[in-house]
Design a protein around this nucleic acid. Structure first.
Lengths: 216, 216
DNA sequence: AACATTTTCAGGATTGCCCCGATTGCCCAT
DNA sequence: ATGGGCAATCGGGGCAATCCTGAAAATGTT
């Protein structure tokens, strides 16, 4: 079985080199290949048959989630660990559904690399501490396409946009012809569901989702 | 003179560890400190007096450009090399104006770390190949000196970032060790100066200016 | 019909924000 | 060198918004 053969997929060369340097410090692993986009990753998985793939999400041409999905479909014996380096942590569920065996958040500790590696080679799933909360929020919705927006109700999406555009609760109540108390409830449920705790976080979420734009 | 003492500033621990691993491969350098946000960077520069600082742009609490500006003002002998890891490459001019001695693009090659290091210790300026084009685009546009951010005072830019990150007035007062009333004044002046009337508008402004990003 | 979800609303407590005002220190220009 | 502008620092008081707890219609689903 040993050594464990690795493929590292990450488009920014310095970061990729850094990750490789960290992985090389772990005993009994060999880095047999590096890729800088999704298609390159598919080719190298096919030709090299690595045991584990460390995969970034944001990749040019073919993103990491899509690449992961194809890899795990075609080569079920290949384990994929997602490195959520640049992207947000809202992709955990999508990653797991794409067949990933591990998910390291952007703020993961260094030794989590080895922890995740050990876990997935034993057939287990490794998730960074702190993202189980995200996961819990997600599984409560029986999401299908699971854009985070799909987990919101119609009213909540309405309120989301208006809040992101700078409306106060009172103004929204006027626009929607509802009581201020009603909008307050929607607001509270909304913040809870998208797991942010202030309007600033809500606006950033809305921009990520394309509900509003930063330019005007 | 040798060895060269380094400070590495980057908020994502895995990436930071990776960069440190790469730098340690270079002979005659010592990493004497690591920081994960702008304020931590300022403190460590003050206490450790490093020769060179490797600085990411997007940092919590106080971003890399702002931190660079203060470092080069207070400690002219400290060289700062910007690592444009997550941010776009549009910040070259801002970085140079902030006093940076080097600028490594997100797609820089690994050995550019050493190239940049050698250059800046010799008093030269190192720019990643390919960004001179960006620079050329900027110098031909004369409007670059009138960024709306330049109209803000130092304190106002600080408060802007913290508000955009979701801090309340009270929390900011705690972070900056000032009275709540003081921050309230800064907040009011800030909103008035950038002509927005709510936090949502402020967040969108901050994202346009690159002070914060929508993804987290 | 039974159940879950969504949408609706309120009272009371808490907190934050806004409008007034003020002082200090700094730069700089007449 | 002195007065004016600007930056940064605070406070009181009032109003508005938010949070917490609870709950009842309306809607949809099986």
């Amino acid at each position: 079985m040993l050594p464990i053969n690795l493929l590292v997929v990450e488009d920014h060369s310095i970061i990729r080199a850094g990750i490789c340097a960290l992985l090389k410090n772990i005993a009994s692993v060999t880095i047999i290949g590096e890729a800088s986009d999704g298609y390159e990753a598919l080719e190298l998985v096919d030709s090299l048959k690595p045991d584990v793939v460390f995969m970034d999400i944001s990749l040019p041409k073919l993103n990491g989630l899509e690449a992961t999905s194809r890899i795990t479909q075609e080569y079920p014996f290949v384990r994929v660990i997602i490195l959520s380096m640049h992207a947000s942590e809202d992709y955990v569920l999508q990653a797991l559904r794409a067949g990933a065996s591990g998910y390291l958040s952007k703020d993961a500790d260094t030794d989590e690399l080895e922890s995740a590696l050990i876990a997935v080679t034993q057939g287990k799933t490794y998730l960074s501490p702190g993202i189980s909360k995200h996961l819990a929020n997600y599984v409560r919705g029986i999401d299908e396409y699971s854009s985070p927006l799909d987990r919101l109700t119609t009213r909540q999406r309405e309120v989301l946009q208006l809040l992101a555009e700078g409306c106060t609760t009172k103004q929204i109540a006027g626009i929607l012809n509802r009581s201020v108390k009603t909008i307050e409830t929607h607001r509270t449920q909304l913040l809870k569901k998208i797991d942010v705790h202030d309007i600033a976080g809500l606006v950033r979420f809305a921009i990520r989702m394309g509900v509003v734009t930063a330019d005007q």
